[in-house]
Design a protein around this nucleic acid. Structure first.
Length: 479
RNA sequence: GCGUCCGUAGCUCAGCCCGGUAGAGCACUCGGCUUUUAACCGAUUGGUCCUAGGUUCAAAUCCUAGCGGACGCACCA
């Protein structure tokens, strides 16, 4: 009974446009057409046709039969002109309503914008210069039951989504109608591939480490907590990959990295998503200065691979990755902007308040106070400091690196200091990881390590204002 | 967490200040036209005005509360 009631309700909730498409779906089935077939063989991707016939003159016809498949994004003059889009591009289709074949006469009234079709016909260029396929046969590949979202601008109407929330909640729609959205994710995929290429070619290996842990370490952040039923224990989702990767370094992996999802139970903003992707790299027998070079080289390399240039435009500001990144100590910067000589947490506070946002061009800030760096090695000749740098781009912290702390006794002391801070109410202080200290007691060679926010770098390289624009399915409040 | 703004047809919005039959464009459907690319011309269809309560003869409009969302600020990579 419940089901019947719901069915009736559902039907009533269908909009006119949806009812119309439902009617057409039934019409297709009455003609013996399967609206959801299994497979379709095409002869070309649309991009390949555009390339192959780029020299075809206006009004010139060919006898070349081609077969393409894609989604109908527009239709004019009673399906005389149709725009078809596949993963690679867009092409026009043509069919004269006076002379078209019978099966097309029957089919077109049952099609809608948004439907997937396969088309076979001869290719030509129209007098107005549009590369066009004269439709001889059309195959329905998927009937859409809902209209694609459109944006109205005056009397103008085009595919698009004006509601930001819909773009993120129903990313599939966003991807259909917004080229930029698809391009962003495509470029992020290239970014990750090229980071791997860069590191792999330097004999680094990628190893996966656990997401589920009994304690979340390696960073100062609040974790998500979950529960393992059969073990009967609470587990936390990782907030960094650091401590496991260094265990791998203890075990003999001299060049190791991981690109992985990190989870932090903190606020959301244009720059923060609760789950995001980091890369951490550990390189044995090198120090933080070697890592500066590797990081700079890597960022420059991927900028070129992703955007085709080492100079990119971000939100109207030029970011130049081609020249050597500025290298400056935190103390120098604070002095430059405030005139003060500071140390410790006061130095870091002053840096965050007065300097960070001014670091627009890629800048390596180095020599950090020891108090805020419990996993970094003490500075070899600057008491109270550690050997650490952070890369700032457009005022945003993008990478963080240090000469890794390899002295197990020092590490134990640092964890103890953090434990005191935690006892004092700082719930983001680092958690004491006894097994990690134990690992160090078996010997970690001199090692530099670096972590970088992939999403943030992706934002710069895709000119995206929000981190949500480079994450396919950003975290959303449940409806 | 604090502040500002928004919620009316499938979509984009007007109407709200100053209460009096629910509007426009586009989309859809039908008809006409036929080499377009915002096609064009004509007609029709389409509404829980976010929800609940209050004031009133009468509420999309005024009042209260709630729900949902956007943006800014604060915290965090």
């Amino acid at each position: 009974m419940t089901t019947v009631v719901q069915t009736v309700d559902d039907k009533q909730e269908l909009t006119n446009l949806e009812q119309e498409r439902q009617r057409k779906l039934e019409g297709l089935r009455e003609l013996g057409i399967d609206p959801y077939p299994y497979k379709f063989e095409r002869s070309h991707f649309i991009k390949d046709l555009i390339e192959k016939y780029k020299d075809l003159a206006d009004e010139e016809r060919t006898e070349d039969m081609v077969t393409v498949a894609g989604r109908v994004t527009n239709q004019r003059n009673d399906w005389m002109f149709v725009d078809l889009v596949d993963d690679t591009g867009k092409i026009q289709l043509f069919s004269d309503s006076k002379t078209r074949a019978e099966h097309l006469q029957q089919l077109f009234p049952l099609l809608d914008k948004g439907d997937h079709i396969g088309v076979t016909g001869k290719i030509r260029r129209t007098p107005r210069g549009a590369l066009t396929i004269d439709m001889e046969t059309v195959t329905v590949l998927s009937k859409t039951l809902k209209p694609l979202p459109e944006i109205v601008e005056g009397k103008r109407r085009r595919l698009g989504i004006s509601d930001v929330e819909t773009r993120y909640r129903q990313r599939y729609l966003d991807l259909i109608v917004n080229e930029k959205s698809k391009d962003n994710l495509y470029k992020k995929a290239i970014l990750m591939r090229e980071i791997r290429n860069f590191l792999d070619s330097r004999d680094f290996v990628e190893i996966e480490t656990p997401i589920l842990n009994t304690e979340a370490g390696g960073a100062a952040a609040k974790p998500f907590v979950t529960h393992h039923n059969s073990l009967g224990v609470d587990l936390t989702l990782r907030i960094a990959t650091e401590l496991h990767l260094k265990r791998l370094a203890v075990g003999g992996f001299e060049r190791v990295y991981e690109i992985g999802r990190i989870f932090r139970n903190e606020g959301m903003s244009i720059k923060h998503n609760p789950e995001f992707t980091s890369i951490e790299v550990y390189w044995a027998y090198t120090d933080v200065y070697d890592m500066m070079g590797l990081t700079e080289e890597m960022v420059r390399y991927v900028a070129q691979k992703v955007t085709g240039s080492e100079i990119v435009n971000y939100q109207g500001t030029e970011l130049n990755f081609s020249k050597p990144f500025r290298r400056v100590t935190m103390q120098e910067l604070v002095k430059e902007h405030t005139g003060k000589d500071l140390v410790g947490k006061a130095l870091n506070d002053a840096f965050e308040h007065h300097c960070e946002e001014k670091l627009i061009e890629p800048t390596m800030v180095y020599d950090y106070p020891i108090e805020i760096s419990p996993l970094a090695k003490k500075h070899r000749d600057k008491p109270g400091f550690v050997e650490r740098f952070e890369l700032f781009i457009y005022g945003r912290e993008t990478a963080n690196a240090f000469s890794e702390l390899t002295d197990p006794q020092d590490q134990r002391q640092r964890f103890e200091d953090q434990a005191k801070e935690r006892a004092g109410g700082d719930d983001e202080a680092h958690v004491f990881d006894e097994d990690f200290v134990n690992a160090l007691e078996y010997g970690l060679p001199p090692t530099s390590g670096m972590g970088l926010g992939i999403d943030r770098l992706a934002m710069f390289l895709t000119d995206s204002a929000s981190i949500r624009d480079v994450i396919a399915f950003p975290t959303m409040k449940p409806l």
